[in-house]
Write a protein that binds this DNA or RNA. Sequence first.
DNA 1: GTTGGGCTTTGACAAAAGTCAAATTACAGT
DNA 2: ACTGTAATTTGACTTTTGTCAAAGCCCAAC
Lengths: 187, 187
Amino acid sequence: MEALIRRLQEFHVVEPLAVEAIEVAFTELTLPKYELLVEQGKTCRHLYFLEKGALRGFYTLDGKEVTHWFGFENDFVTSFHSFITQQSAVENIQLIEGSVLRAISKEQLTALLNRFPSVERLLRIAYENYYIRLEERYVNAHFRSAAERYEDLLARQPHIIERVPLGQIAAYLGITQETLSRVRSKY
Amino acid sequence: MEALIRRLQEFHVVEPLAVEAIEVAFTELTLPKYELLVEQGKTCRHLYFLEKGALRGFYTLDGKEVTHWFGFENDFVTSFHSFITQQSAVENIQLIEGSVLRAISKEQLTALLNRFPSVERLLRIAYENYYIRLEERYVNAHFRSAAERYEDLLARQPHIIERVPLGQIAAYLGITQETLSRVRSKY
DNA sequence: GTTGGGCTTTGACAAAAGTCAAATTACAGT
DNA sequence: ACTGTAATTTGACTTTTGTCAAAGCCCAAC
């Protein structure tokens, strides 16, 4: 639990009463590898904090799974579009390792926001952070070659290599597995 | 001014007192074509609402300007990374038409957020919306061919074709001008 | 109407990445 | 240690996109 609170306070420090309420609102759950947290077509009703483990987001395209995103320790994860609009999700989120998570429902989050303006502020700041990160990823995907993006990934998240199969990393980078394999063979 | 308030209330309705304060905080400015709203290397101190006109965000890469984004009527625009962190911007924002804008400074925005929890909520919801839109753009850029993305763009923002030179649209789609021209020649 | 500069198209070729198939390697379960 | 499956690499070939250069087109200024 401390990890979650610590991560939240990196965005914005809130009063003890709010911390308590947050602690109560999040439920711990331990799930095995391959478990689906979010399923295409279903509505995603929770926001998760990944305390330990790893997971991926993927689409199905022409019958193939295309991973477009990974989450690791201390990440907040959900299918944003689905969680926010409460419409059905267009992606799947699946554990790629046995993981420990904390979950909060949309309703509980709304209740927290109504009760504590400080939590509203925290969430606003969290969005700012996540928005900037996404923007960076977007620009990278747009303006850099496969090789550059791979080196970037290695520099930022070296652990990803040991924890995720190559095909999924390739999809994340927006290239095929074979191309990535060739990029790697040239160091 | 009504356009700005109307757009804001689409996110979240706030009390009259907050509306008044928002109206006071935003300054109207009219600027000519080619004017730079944000300059690479300088800190972006304002958030803008584009009331009338059009603009683009661009990077310089190997001495060339690469447009990665457009803004039109009723868009909120700023160099997010720079505005939020108050570090120097990595991109430029330039008017591509003479435009009417409303600007609010970082300090004024912070003051509004401290005074009105309802504005904090409004901003949080605005971020949710903008985050989802960016995510969509990201997935599109990642998983669709040049031709598909062009058709998408035509469907969503048909006016862009008349208002923006082809080379900039191509950059926005992540392809060269020549490739886009060839895509178009096949209807 | 002519001129000149930006914008767009076209052509020829090069480079990057994709596809399909086969070969190799890694590794979990027995 | 052996086996079988999944993951990764390699090869041959195709498709897509990029690059560079040369027209062609549009339109505003003279």
